[in-house]
Design a protein around this nucleic acid. Structure first.
Length: 531
RNA sequence: GUCCCCGUAGCUUAAUGGAUAAAGUAGAGCUCUUCUAAGGCUUUGAUGCAGGUUCGAUUCCUGCCGGGGACACCA
């Protein structure tokens, strides 16, 4: 019994009863969904509101009632509610137990090839909490797409050349250089000169400082990736994208680009956009031109159907323009680019920015959260995973796109709606399963269906929706609700003991254990065996 | 100024055009001689304003108010 089979049944009913859409307005149509309240059943459809004839529809559905449906009701303004049977829940537990770590995976997106670019820390600058946010989102989006059966390659892109590097190299500190660039004309000229030398490699001293700094940064990033359990299939660099991008710009002079005030620009106005500079008046490629080069490199490395770039939403306008430009200069890629943007990780005091120096590095935040984790914590190696899980949860719990106000005092609470809550519920089931002295069986005697059973079987639908919408928060919301339901079950039913229902209860525990672990894994959050 | 995004309990967030708007947190009260109380139970409390479309709007459209962002040689 699935959503699809209910839909099919209803379509048949409409046909048999001659209620098909013919004379209805275009917005007619019906949906099958899970009602918010369990009292209203496991599935619900509004078909009788759209088409009327509720009694006849229900009669048809009852007569052709599919396996797994126990009861069908017509209620309220015309909702038809479906209640699933104990047999159905027994079978769905069995399926979870069989499929184990594969439960939740599907082939909805089989054959689809996606490149996901995220994190993008810049050498010479710190890996701050903004990167942490981007990484949490990118990693989970990539995993969600994989779970839906697509082939995914992940990419990090590093700004190893450009003005920000010149600013950092000027006096050895990015913040200092950035400030001087704004305020001091002489410093500005010097920094621009350094920028040129980085590109043309004419100054041995700068070359050496540059190579050292770059290497050190990249090694640092690798350590953080490991901590965050992120693997990149490719690391691309602005230094390799720059020449390619510049070349493409020059090849399309007059067609796509034109000269304006000494720079090479794309006039976006004819596309309802704005003008952006691709080569500056020194002839050097800007971020815009490099992006063109990057996309070309990506396509050569992996023949994607979709290339997704995840960044902060302050880049929305930039990507709108660049996507149009790339469609013009590389028509084969037109329509295959997607920009997924998220909000900003803010501190209560305001914008988090490495330009003002008001930054918190990822490392600092992780350490801070570790310190704040429950004093009861055993202090083992698992603590870091719990801390990172707590942070990732905070980032992934809400829809991508909105800002997150990160109040360190309050936000990383270990109580209630949190990563710790999920991890704790999971860890507790491990202990239960270890202590269990009966076999796990769905054929054992049982009481009435528990709410947690009515949620467990939905996991694959949630993963599918999260994949279609690139929205990890659906999984977070679901897991949080699931954990709540499970904790309720756990408190009210003794699992270990002599009761005849113990084997079935253990099956529920095991199924929850599997789904929670699979869910956390898809989110990129560690499921600790013990806490 | 132009364009984009966002306004939901005191706070932080959910809600593929549907039913009584869902959670957490904070406030009030209860719950460990039983499997991990980082848990469970009860309770107070919300869709910025004004129109429109619809049988039905937190959701779609228009205007206003409030917040954030982008808008030429940064990334």
């Amino acid at each position: 019994m699935t959503k699809e089979s209910i839909k099919t049944l209803i379509s048949e009913a409409l046909k048999e009863l001659n209620l098909e859409a013919g004379d209805l307005p275009a917005q007619a149509g019906f949906v099958v969904e899970h009602p918010t309240d369990f009292k209203m059943g496991d599935y619900s459809t509004n078909v009788a509101i759209k088409y009327g004839h509720g009694d006849e529809l229900v009669r048809y559905i009852v007569q052709n009632k599919p396996d797994g449906v126990e009861r069908v009701e017509l209620v309220g303004p015309g909702f038809i509610n479906f209640y699933l049977s104990k047999e159905f829940f027994k079978n769905s537990l069995g399926e979870i137990l069989d499929r184990k770590e594969n439960f939740g995976k599907s082939e909805h997106a089989k054959g689809f090839k996606v490149m996901v670019e995220h994190t993008q820390p810049n050498p010479f600058k710190s890996f701050h909490i903004g990167h942490l946010m981007n990484n949490a989102i990118g990693e989970s989006v990539a995993r969600i797409i994989v779970a839906n059966g697509a082939k995914v390659k992940t990419v990090s892109y590093h700004g190893d050349v450009g003005m920000h590097v010149a600013k950092a190299l000027w006096k050895g500190d990015y913040v200092l250089g950035s400030k001087a660039f704004e305020e001091d004309e002489k410093a500005k000229a010097e920094i621009q000169d350094i920028n040129k030398k980085i590109y043309d490699k004419s100054d041995p001293e700068i070359n050496s400082r540059y190579e050292n700094g770059r290497k050190r940064s990249l090694e640092e990033f690798e350590k953080i990736y490991k901590k965050l359990e992120t693997n990149f299939d490719f690391n691309f660099f602005e230094s390799e994208a720059a020449d390619i991008g510049k070349k493409i710009v020059l090849q399309n002079m007059g067609k796509v680009f034109e000269e304006s005030q000494g720079a090479i620009v794309f006039k976006g106005e004819k596309f309802g956009l704005h003008t952006r500079v691709f080569l500056n008046s020194d002839g050097l490629p800007t971020y815009e031109a490099k992006e063109i080069g990057l996309v070309k490199i990506k396509k050569e490395k992996f023949d994607f159907d979709l290339s997704m770039t995840i960044t902060g939403n302050e880049q929305d306008a930039f990507f709108q323009v660049v996507e149009v430009v790339i469609g013009e200069v590389m028509p084969e890629i037109k329509g295959k680019l997607s920009h997924l943007s998220h909000g900003m990780l803010r501190l209560p005091s305001g914008k988090m920015s490495s330009r003002t120096g008001d930054i918190i590095t990822a490392e600092e935040l992780i350490e801070d959260v570790k310190r704040r984790l429950a004093p009861t914590s055993p202090g083992g190696v698992g603590d870091e995973a719990v801390a990172i899980g707590a942070i990732k949860y905070m980032i992934l719990r809400q829809a991508i796109g909105n800002d997150i106000v990160f109040d360190i005092e309050k936000s990383v609470s270990t109580e209630g709606d949190s990563g710790v809550y999920l991890q704790y519920a999971y860890a507790r089931t491990n202990s239960l399963l270890e202590k269990a002295d009966k076999e796990i069986s769905t054929n054992a005697p049982r009481e009435n269906t528990h709410e947690v059973e009515r949620l467990l079987y939905r996991f694959p639908e949630i993963v599918e929706r999260a994949g279609k919408e690139y929205a990890p928060h659906h999984i977070v919301t679901y897991l949080t609700q699931l954990a709540g339901s499970f904790n309720n079950f756990y408190t009210h039913e003794q699992v270990i003991g002599d009761s005849p229902e113990a084997s079935y209860r253990l099956a529920i525990v095991k199924a929850f254990n599997i789904v929670m672990k699979n869910g956390l894994t898809i989110l990129g959050i560690t499921a600790p065996e013990r806490m």
